[in-house]
């Protein structure tokens, strides 16, 4: 980027960028500040003489202690982790094979099938949870993690399939052909050559699927009823909003702790993740 005047750089780059960063990060900052703010400050009027809405002068960990001791937060965390991991794994495996088949194998109706899978992803969850609830009840897996593990793939598999299908298309098919001449079967070439090359795509599909399951709310709200089976998003909201009382401190502490695992996952795989989304394979 060549910018001839300094002020232009400020006007066109630094100021808009700063605005954008503040806009994006402010909710997280607000969440963090609120979770460390003592109750006395939390419920003080903004017009009070000693109000400090944007920071706190006496940070406290009482909300965290309260969250961890008086609620089943750790249990929720474990539930969410379990559900997200298993649902992601199932979806990734299905997505890998489906994405490969749709991008590489020519068969009758493959394009129609690809579009059909994509359309299922567009069916809103708010519509789908009603029939799914019926299925869950018939299968008698309501109020167990399996209710979520088996329903999350309904939106995760189409998503993974499409992301991976796009990625597989960027891998030259000569690589596979060469492997097949070198002595691999079609399946062998897929597993030994295509999948390793597709790791950035697989990782980003996995991260996305994991995030979607981690944050999922409606199915978790509908299919789980007992406190100890709940996931973080549902548990925090249903247990820390009692009637019309919002326990803001604990709510935000829960939100903060709930987003830590995601932040760790993202920071680990950020490079792969970017490569996966931009989809470039250099031979």
């Amino acid at each position: 980027m060549v910018i001839e005047h300094k002020w232009k750089k400020w006007v066109y780059f630094i100021i808009p960028m700063a605005g954008f960063i503040i806009f994006t990060l402010f909710p997280f900052y607000w969440m963090a500040v609120t979770s460390f703010r003592p109750d006395g400050e939390l419920y003080r009027s903004w017009r009070a003489a000693n109000a400090t809405p944007f920071w706190t002068l006496s940070p406290t960990t009482e909300h965290f202690r309260d969250l961890l001791t008086n609620t089943a937060f750790l249990q929720w965390l474990m539930n969410t982790m379990f559900v997200a991991l298993v649902a992601t794994a199932i979806s990734l495996v299905c997505g890998l094979f489906a994405g490969y088949a749709l991008s590489r194998l020519k068969f009758r109706g493959s394009e129609f099938l690809g579009t059909a899978i994509f359309i299922t992803y567009l069916v809103p969850q708010t519509l789908l949870f009603i029939p799914l609830a019926d299925i869950i009840r018939n299968m008698q897996i309501g109020n167990t993690p399996w209710a979520l593990i088996l329903t999350y793939p309904t939106f995760l598999i189409p998503f993974c399939t499409w992301l991976l299908m796009g990625y597989f298309k960027t891998i030259p098919k000569e690589l596979e052909e060469c492997a097949r001449i070198d002595g691999a079967t079609r399946f062998g070439a897929m597993v030994r050559i295509v999948f390793p090359i597709a790791i950035p795509g697989i990782l980003s599909a996995g991260i996305f699927a994991f995030t979607l399951s981690w944050n999922e709310f409606i199915y978790a709200l509908v299919f789980l009823s007992s406190v100890e089976e709940k996931t973080v998003p549902v548990g925090v909201v249903s247990e820390l909003i009692r009637g019309d009382i919002f326990f803001w401190g604990q709510l935000m502490a829960g939100a903060l702790l709930g987003s830590v695992p995601m932040a760790i996952v993202y920071s680990f795989f950020v490079e792969y993740y970017v490569a996966g989304l931009t989809g470039s394979v250099k031979g």
Binding site: E174, C178, R180, I181, I193
Partner: peptide
């Protein structure tokens, strides 16, 4: 016969080296 059983080797236009 599948390619693997034909006892041939092929060089491709884009080389098709396994990048990993």
């Amino acid at each position: 016969l599948p390619p693997m059983d034909r006892d041939i080797a092929m060089v491709f236009q884009n080389y098709a080296l396994y990048p990993h």
